[in-house]
Design a protein around this nucleic acid. Structure first.
Length: 198
DNA sequence: TGCACGATTCTCT
DNA sequence: GAGAATCGTGCAA
């Protein structure tokens, strides 16, 4: 069953936490790929220096974050990798998003292996990182702004992760020397081997 | 119009 | 553990 809009229209930190255990599904001409979310990070709109929408910066790139919740925000980093986010938040028009940092492959693994061109044969590295999971799921800028409630790219109600299995920490690769750096806005499933970093 | 750099990953040492 | 790959974006000029 697909998550409905109201799931995303809540406090972003809550949504980031509850996204753990949910299942991302992408239907393409190549076939179906699915993966369980095991790691997320929250990026809270204008006041978060680490967010692209810091200071309400509204550009063609960040535009999606200002739109309806429950849409995909996909952007290019380092000129070669994509990152998948879901827009969220209680306030309409406030740019908040959740970065999906890692998945546990559930379906279409053959397709993922092909897309990732896993030369070392290590399937454990298939989706344990924001850039990697986009490659494995076949996500590019084309899916940017896709409605996660309806499109071929959507998120299913998976399993509920026990509170005790949820770990919280500071975000990865956010080194700005200000108060936002140390916010524990990263969530992950404890002891899951597909989490990107411990 | 030009330029420095990033919500990363891979390879080689 | 360090360095390269690689290009769209935001900001200065």
């Amino acid at each position: 069953m697909i998550l409905t809009r109201d799931f995303y229209e809540r406090d972003t930190l809550t949504v980031a936490k509850e996204l753990l255990g949910k299942v991302i599904v992408h239907e393409t001409s190549e076939g179906l790929t699915m993966g369980k979310i095991v790691e997320t990070e929250a990026y809270i709109g204008p006041e978060d220096e680490a967010s692209h929408a810091y200071r309400n910066l509204r550009t063609p790139r960040t535009e999606v974050q200002f739109g309806p919740k429950g849409h995909a925000y996909i952007y290019l980093v380092y000129g070669m990798y994509y990152c998948l986010n879901a827009t969220s938040g209680r306030l309409a028009g406030k740019p908040e998003a959740i970065l999906v940092r890692a998945l546990e492959p559930l379906g279409g693994i053959e397709i993922m292996l092909r897309r990732r061109d896993v030369s070392n044969g290590n399937a454990a590295n298939l989706t344990n990182g924001p850039g990697r999971l986009c490659m494995a799921m076949g996500l590019t800028k084309k899916q940017n702004a896709a409605d996660l409630c309806f499109s071929p790219l959507h998120i299913d109600v998976g399993e509920v992760v026990d509170e005790e299995d949820i770990a919280q920490s500071t975000r990865v690769k956010v080194d700005h020397a200000d108060e936002w750096r140390d916010r524990p806005w990263r969530f992950y499933v404890r002891n899951n081997k597909f989490v990107s970093k411990l």
